[in-house]
């Protein structure tokens, strides 16, 4: 275990962690505001990557355009799912909506992933965003793509944070998140807000999918593991928390996963992450909530002019 190895693993942890942060922030805003267990997040993730990849290779569209198209496709898919699948189902299910929407989401993902396989085969595809060149800093290596990934993730998270804090839409969203009943009485339309939230959350999800496709490869099952991480990070950060806080939770998970490689063989890393999660949940009701409230109340809130 050398210092260089620690630094290298920490770098990997930051890169992965930023990715998890983006996932968590996107999933978290959907879950926190609408309360929907949007498992089909995995489908949006994959769909965005495919749209970008297909447009890039078959359609010969350069990256900025193909990436934009992917993002729009993701947002559109998310909105469509909310408008035509979740909303009518929620109205019909009443108190059971949490569970029925989850089942529906599951079915959508199974259908969608296999449909993608039918249309585009299981053959891996690629996405090229920028020229990938290695960078060496103080014995730690990463690539230009990694830098782009980290920058993009945090930019998007910050943008989401700012949107929620400063814009009218953001205020409406936060109101609906905190107290949907009251929000409706105040004249805010939850239906429209939900659509906006799904658009935003799916956009972030799509971005993550495109980045993942560029970093590794695009294949139909690429979204299945990330959606679990999205869920975990969103809860760890807190579904009512600010996106930046959720982002930090994601970073933490990424670092834990990566640094566990110092002590155990990499095949055990997911066990380490879930064990840490388990221990957190066991201890949670005792101290950590109070701890987090303290931290949050210490942070300045721009909305109150601090």
């Amino acid at each position: 275990m050398s210092l260089e190895q620690v630094e290298q693993l920490a770098a990997a942890g930051i890169i992965n962690g930023s990715f998890y942060a983006l996932l968590g922030a996107g999933f978290g805003v959907i879950l926190g505001v609408t309360g929907r267990f949007h498992y089909a997040f995995a489908l949006t993730f994959t769909f965005a990557a495919y749209v970008t990849s297909v447009l890039e290779t078959d359609g010969h569209l350069p990256f900025p355009l193909s990436g934009l198209a992917g993002l729009i496709a993701a947002a559109a898919l998310g909105v469509a799912i909310e408008r035509w699948i979740y909303r009518p189902l929620a109205h019909a299910s009443g108190a059971l909506s949490l569970l029925t929407i989850f089942i529906s989401s599951l079915g959508l993902t199974i259908a969608g992933v296999n449909l993608i396989t039918l249309v585009w085969t299981a053959f891996s595809r690629s996405i090229t965003l920028i020229d990938v060149r290695p960078l060496h800093i103080e014995g730690v290596t990463f690539t230009t793509l990694d830098v782009l990934i980290v920058a993009t993730c945090w930019l998007l998270i910050a943008a989401l944070n700012a949107t929620l804090s400063f814009t009218d839409l953001g205020r409406s969203i936060r109101a609906a998140r905190g107290n949907p009943y009251l929000a409706r009485i105040m004249g805010l339309e939850p239906d429209a807000i939900y659509l906006a939230v799904f658009a935003i959350g799916s956009l972030l999800c799509g971005a993550a999918g495109i980045l993942d496709g560029a970093r590794y490869a695009v294949q139909p099952n690429m979204g299945i593991r990330p959606v679990v991480f999205a869920f975990v990070v969103a809860f760890l950060g807190g579904t009512q928390s600010r996106p930046l806080v959720v982002g930090l939770a994601g970073l933490l998970i990424g670092l834990i996963e990566s640094l566990s490689g110092l002590f155990v063989s990499p095949q055990w890393s997911s066990l380490v992450v879930f064990s840490v999660l388990f221990i957190y949940l066991v201890l949670r009701p005792l101290d950590l909530r109070a701890f987090r409230i303290q931290i949050l109340s210490a942070m300045p809130d721009p909305a109150r002019g601090e």
């Binding site: 699948i85 019909a92 299910s93 529906s104 079915g107 959508l108 199974i110």
Partner: peptide, 16 residues
């Protein structure tokens, strides 16, 4: 599998 997935969506909608 596509039909199975869609089936879940439809069934749960029809009888939540």
């Amino acid at each position: 599998l596509v039909i199975y997935g869609l089936g879940l969506v439809v069934l749960v909608r029809v009888r939540p």
